[in-house]
């Protein structure tokens, strides 16, 4: 008997007034699993992971995160959000707060932990993302790679059980991509449950337990990376991989 999945997605659908962005998505994610989602632009990858912390509301199907079914109940939604960290393509750091304040505001205001404890935690996670010396700067004073690592640390400070990444390196200059990916690989090593939307296939090969390929709002293929990269079943997936791997 296996434990209950930490994320259960059943028959999930999402309409944006008239446009069907997600169609009948089924996916279970177990605690500690690392899932990498790829697929062409506009295929619904962002929409899917944004449904998991309800930045988007699904319009049909069922979504259970950490035993809580996502619905209208705002308390439930907030409970889920505290357990699910999210890293955005555009970082979305709070520009009016220092790095340290960016990391402590969630724990202090949402988790209600003492300020001193929150700061100690913040410094611990800044250490983890290799920028302990930037604690007192403002986000605008950091490079893109540093900002994204602060964003990862900000999520980690909430001590979530699941981390979602939506193309975390797409907005970065090429020379900064690896510093962010390295942090994510290290995070994967700690046993964190991760769902990562990315086209960094080197990273995917290294950490993914399962690869998910999406197209036109559907999951076309789910496979372990060795199978996924060498013998994808669907024609469309193969075509997509050929296209991005030839660079």
């Amino acid at each position: 008997m296996t434990a209950r999945p930490i994320i259960e997605i059943r028959g999930l659908g999402k309409f944006y007034d008239g446009f069907e962005a997600l169609k009948n998505i089924n996916l279970d994610v177990h605690s500690g699993e690392r899932i990498v989602i790829c697929g062409p632009s506009g295929s619904g990858k962002s929409t899917l992971i944004r449904c998991i912390n309800r930045l988007e509301e699904h319009t049909s199907g069922e979504l259970v995160v950490d035993g809580i079914e996502l619905g209208e109940d705002t308390k439930d939604i907030r409970a889920v959000r505290q357990e699910v960290g999210m890293v955005f393509q555009q970082f979305n750091l709070f520009p009016h707060l220092t790095v340290l304040e960016n990391l402590t505001i969630g724990p202090v205001r949402v988790r209600k932990i003492a300020k001193a404890e929150a700061e100690a935690r913040a410094r611990k996670y800044l250490e983890r993302v290799h920028i302990p010396e930037q604690a007192d700067k403002y986000p605008a004073q950091l490079s893109g790679g540093q900002q994204q690592r602060v964003a990862i640390a900000r999520s980690l400070c909430m001590e979530p059980r699941i981390m979602l990444f939506d193309e975390p390196t797409s907005a970065l200059d090429p020379e900064m991509i690896n510093e962010v990916l390295d942090v994510m690989v290290e995070l994967a090593g700690t046993g964190m449950t991760m769902i990562v939307v990315t086209h960094e296939m080197g990273f995917a090969r290294k950490v993914a337990d399962r690869m998910v390929f999406m197209e036109r709002g559907e999951i076309v293929e789910v496979a372990p990376p060795d199978v996924f990269f060498t013998a994808p079943k669907s024609e469309r997936c193969r075509a997509f991989l050929d296209q991005i791997l030839e660079h």
């Binding site: 912390n53 959000r81 699910v84 999210m86 979305n92 709070f94 505001i105 205001r109 900000r154 909430m158």
Partner: peptide
Amino acid sequence: RGQWEAAKSIGMTRGQSYRYIILPQ
């Protein structure tokens, strides 16, 4: 919009988002 989303994704209520994130900016 990204600021709202970041505030929400760390579990802030609408009121907290206004008070700590949106209004100060």
